[in-house]
Nucleic acid binder design. Sequence first.
DNA 1: GATATTTTTTGACTTTAGTCAAAACTTTTC
DNA 2: GAAAAGTTTTGACTAAAGTCAAAAAATATC
Lengths: 188, 188
Amino acid sequence: MDLSPLFNTLNNIQILSTDLQSRFAEFVVEEQVPKKTILLKAGMVAHRIYFIKKGFVRAFYYKGDNQFTSWFMGQGEIIISVYSFFSRKPSFENIETLEDCTLQSISWEQLQELYATYPKFNITGRIITEQYYIRSEERAINLQTLTATQRYEKLLAEYPQIAQMATLGQIATYLGIKQETLSRIRAR
Amino acid sequence: MDLSPLFNTLNNIQILSTDLQSRFAEFVVEEQVPKKTILLKAGMVAHRIYFIKKGFVRAFYYKGDNQFTSWFMGQGEIIISVYSFFSRKPSFENIETLEDCTLQSISWEQLQELYATYPKFNITGRIITEQYYIRSEERAINLQTLTATQRYEKLLAEYPQIAQMATLGQIATYLGIKQETLSRIRAR
DNA sequence: GATATTTTTTGACTTTAGTCAAAACTTTTC
DNA sequence: GAAAAGTTTTGACTAAAGTCAAAAAATATC
């Protein structure tokens, strides 16, 4: 199992001791997950933290009859439903794969053990949480300050291949607009 | 100095030992702050975490020439610029009082000392961060799923007195609409 | 308490996005 | 590879929000 992309991402935050890396490596499970697999279902507690070695994923939730997309994530990113994973409470959001994925993950319990055994690792955890927090703030700021067209351009800049992985409807619910509107924006 | 509202809020999250409470109490500084005082200026690092014993406060940021409100907070709430306080980096947002306030606060260094001396206190810290995270997610969800009118009603439900403390313009930038639009919404 | 300043409202018009329905593509399945 | 299912586009119309400007109301200042 090739762990170098994962450790690259983590060492980029803070260099991990070889000791910690080998303990970590013992925990990691790698799996091939086909397109359209639900990784987390609303109502369940998120119990694993995933690293996307290859693939593309989205999180979504329902409000009444309508579905909304919270975020998209691709290769090299760490995915969790932050709220559920940390608070150990049922998730309001679903996570699904949008293409065949190679995922590496450890469980919540294993993560706690790493925190306890290697206190310095808490810094890495804290920084990942911070990065997630910033993402969430950015999402609110984008919705507050940008027009639909600007938000679409920003998403395209971040994930240029998104049109191949997600449907128009999924992208529209992320942007907070109707799919007909997105279709017209794209036609220009 | 009456610390019971503050300890009420904290004990509500997790009961604190009397030991911790008395150490905490030694650190707390109480101040009377007049209306329109800037508690944190964009570009500065947030170095204190505040509890609003009395008063009303808002956070805002600039994007180009335009000002946007991130949040409002009132009595009994804990205020920080999460990103800046935890990452120790310059804040992009400003925090100002909207009326005369009584604030109680401790510094980042004092908070770290409490974490180190009373490890259980980390749980309280973690839960406060989680609550902030949820607020940020909710803000994005509200902007994504609600109409301007619904967002206004929700804000009014949370802070019924807001019209007395904040100007129409400030409320409008929180909702992500123009103040003329908010004026018309209100006229109905 | 009159004047200046700031804040809010109103009016006429434009732009942006939503709605509903049908047509045109694409992709999947047998 | 034809039919079915899913997805995207287009059209005509409606609703919501923005723009610019001016008037009205509220608040602060001397």
